[in-house]
């Protein structure tokens, strides 16, 4: 794994996948990085954490895609996962109005916790089930632009729109990083992201226990 903080010219991004269970977020990301996998895989395919390497305009980018458990009862775990993410892919099912409402609560939470540091993309999946659509494209697009998020429609089944969605998100994240670098040359995102390293001298009183890394309950 490349080291984020060194000057290798690979840009590492952490992207978190959010959305209700059954909206197909796992299939979506698996479809995206599938070429990494042997289709005749004997053992179980690990699709919780995936890496995708991209080359955009000569820049090497590595996306670390973090899947999250979408069941409502796991909602409280969100902050542990989206902490220091560069991007979030919020997936809903176009045939399921509730899954779209769920996205809205994620957007609110992400904006509150991470502000505009994080690039959001709202994704309406399962366009292959157009006849059962319950979330209108217009409504979703209006909402996305209102909250400053990108909006895409995809079909993991037919492999439509996925490549494009991740590509646009990556470009957006690159732009964001460039903005931040010009804004503040001394305190880049990567530096602020690093957790404090405490150096304890032998005769020093031990420091208070380090901050709980996995957030409050």
């Amino acid at each position: 794994m490349a080291n984020i903080s060194t000057s290798t010219n690979t840009q590492n991004f952490k992207v978190v996948l959010l959305g209700e269970g059954c909206v197909g977020k796992t299939s979506l990301v698996l479809r995206y990085v599938e070429d990494k996998f042997n289709s005749n895989h004997i053992s179980t395919v690990q699709a919780s954490f995936l890496n995708k390497k991209l080359n955009i305009e000569g820049k090497r980018v590595n996306l670390a895609i973090w899947d999250t458990a979408g069941q409502e009862k796991f909602h409280a775990l969100g902050p542990i996962y989206y902490r220091s993410s560069n991007g979030a892919v919020l997936v809903y099912d176009i045939t399921d109005e509730d899954s779209f409402q769920r996205i809205k609560s994620w957007v609110k939470e992400l904006r509150k916790m991470l502000g505009t540091d994080i690039c959001l993309v709202i994704v309406g999946n399962k366009t292959d089930l157009e006849k059962d659509r319950h979330v209108s494209l217009e409504e979703a697009e209006t909402y996305a632009s209102k909250v400053g998020a990108l909006h895409f429609q995809t079909s993991a089944k037919l492999n439509q729109g996925i490549e494009e969605m991740f590509l646009t998100l990556t470009q957006k994240m690159l732009e964001r990083v460039a903005e931040q670098e010009t804004q503040n040359n001394t305190l880049t995102r990567q530096n602020s992201q690093r957790r404090n390293v405490l150096v304890v001298e032998d005769d020093q009183v031990p420091p208070p226990p380090s901050k709980h890394c996995c957030g409050s309950s």
């Binding site: 794994m1 890496n51 996995c214």
Partner: peptide, 23 residues
């Protein structure tokens, strides 16, 4: 910290989440 954005960080997060769920 550089290790925590990769796979190791992901499964460490999963471990913490599982602890949270159990608690």
């Amino acid at each position: 910290p550089s290790l925590l954005s990769g796979e190791g960080g992901y499964y460490l997060t999963t471990l913490s989440s599982a602890v949270h769920v159990l608690k």
